[in-house]
Design a protein around this nucleic acid. Structure first.
Lengths: 332, 332
DNA sequence: CTGTTAGCGCGTTCAT
DNA sequence: ATGAACGCGCTAACAG
């Protein structure tokens, strides 16, 4: 790599002081039009670009934002990452990507690393951390936005999973289903907990006391996990006529279990998924599911973070996205 | 945020000079065991972490690597990103994620931004840049590893797309198919070009002169693009008995087109995809496809970059991954 | 409006 | 084995 051109080179070439170059760089006014143009010409000619690290050391702002997700290979988080990157780029920030690999210790480690790297702020996605530790780590950063988790004194962007589950329950009730089962996700998953709550409350509100035996937890939130959980639940409860699944992969596994057990979908059992991944419209029967605009969530989180950064009011906002029911053949 | 503890605080607390703390930090020897332990104790007690930016300014190393992908929301690149992040974390590096959004100008801009941020190296995935511009930008960085593209004097990790396509052709020939069509991807896509080459050469090698009329380009590399391209090709060439698709989404679209046109798969037309995405095994019939371990590609690229960084020999390596044929019902 | 003087927090000479 | 002085490239606070 060739030698970098520094602010001193520009200053010398333009016959001004380094400070004047700095002013031209940052449009702080306090500079005459003539010199401004002259300096800009030299900057352009020398193809000078200020060093972000030097600037960072001087200003304590790095123009960098940390994004922690459980797993970027999971389409759910990849979409959020895409939205966040778009919004960051638009605002002149760069994104430091971190996979927490579903591990709490790793997550703390990443938070510390980001602190060490002096990121301006952090977007933390679906944190698995206990409240106390989370609060402690959040305090170490200038600004944090949580996605799908809430915390006192911290901004957050959430999907209304409880409401989403309730909407699905109501849809199935509207189809005349009365024995509605739930295939839940991990116990430590915030969204799974919320969906369980929405499901339960919606059943109570409808006068259908929820039956704990109608709920089954998946070992893993994927096709296999859904298949096994559905088999277990369908065998234990042959009277089941509706099944709400933690996500579309789980629902796909449930479809397979139904087929094997000779339960027709949707005639015998109406099945619903969540997330509306690509797969949802391609399996047979196509899945009724909940759609949330994940890219928009990423964009919103990043914009909110930048707002927090600029206001520095310490105020915290909460934005809630409502998932949208997508009706397909599995629960028409 | 509380005030950061700096190296000076540690030095004062430990009753030594800042330099001694620095030595303790970097294990450069030249320090007695006693003071080393004492300083380490203070570091631990004060929970001191050296500032990456200050260190970066002094050393010109940031411990940061830039990763440019066309689109992180595309599972293909998300998997590579996941692998790269794992390998980076393991080696103590952080990843600066950038989406080029399939735009050459944006890609150049990102390369410049990464330079400004003084990343130690760059992994550039499926660059769309013309050779000359690419070479120019690559020179500005200390180390660059290209994925799915090659360039003189630059390390690269590639999937052998030509060979992969050839393997599929041979498989279909082995099934007795003689009129084998190709649904190609974008003209500017390196991998699509390679697959066209492999397809053509394999047919020539088998004595089946390739027929240009058997090749159809997709407007977009997704289900819709595949559907329309397949409809056009199947209508124009009713004698087609094999169809090789740019990727699994295209193949899925082709399956739909076959169904609509009353062509049975695989009896009338054997269909093959590429990438082995989750969907491939779930559509009906399940897709014969090519699998490449994308996460491994990401890991390999990052390790290669770090090697280049440490050797600084200027030597460049090339690693080629062979895709693996996965045989399913669409071309058994 | 412009230039001068000081740091930002660390590593790297050199002395000691 | 330890410490003092300097510089990385830039911005902030002051002077003129």
């Amino acid at each position: 790599m060739s030698f970098r051109v520094s602010i001193a080179d520009v200053a010398r070439e333009a016959g001004v002081s380094r400070q004047t170059v700095s002013r031209a760089l940052n449009n702080k006014g306090e500079i005459s039009d003539a010199t401004l143009r002259r300096v800009q010409e030299v900057i352009h000619r020398l193809d000078y670009r200020p060093s972000s690290i030097a600037r960072g050391l001087a200003t304590h702002h790095t123009g960098t934002i940390g994004l922690i997700v459980p797993d970027i290979a999971n389409p759910f988080f990849a979409d959020i990452g895409r939205g966040a990157d778009d919004a960051a780029h638009e605002a002149g920030y760069s994104l430091l990507l971190c996979n927490a690999v579903e591990d709490a210790a790793r997550e703390v480690d990443l938070l510390r690393t980001l602190e060490q790297r002096a990121v301006d702020g952090v977007v933390l996605c679906s944190s698995r951390l206990p409240e106390k530790i989370l609060a402690e780590q959040v305090k170490r950063h200038d600004a944090v936005v949580l996605i799908n988790r809430s915390l006192d004194g911290c901004s957050s962007v959430c999907v209304d999973d409880a409401r989403g589950a309730a909407v699905v329950v109501q849809h199935l009730l509207g189809l005349g289903r009365r024995r509605i089962g739930l295939l839940a996700g991990s116990e430590v998953s915030h969204s799974s907990g919320e969906r369980v709550r929405g499901y339960t409350e919606a059943l109570i509100a409808a006068g259908e006391g929820p039956d704990p035996a109608l709920m089954q937890r998946c070992d893993s939130p994927d096709i296999d996990g859904g298949y096994h959980a559905a088999r277990a639940l369908l065998s234990a409860r042959p009277d089941l006529d509706g099944l709400i699944c933690y996500n579309d992969l789980v629902a796909t596994g449930a479809l397979r279990a139904c087929a094997e057990l000779g339960r027709r979908v949707p005639d015998d059992v109406a099945v619903a998924g969540a997330d509306d991944i690509l797969l949802a419209s391609l399996v047979t029967p196509a899945l009724t599911t909940l759609r949330s605009n994940r890219q928009a969530i990423g964009v919103a989180a990043l914009r909110m973070l930048i707002d927090d950064l600029q206001c520095a009011s310490g105020a915290c906002n909460t934005l809630v996205f409502q998932p949208e029911l997508v009706v397909r053949a599995s629960a028409p």
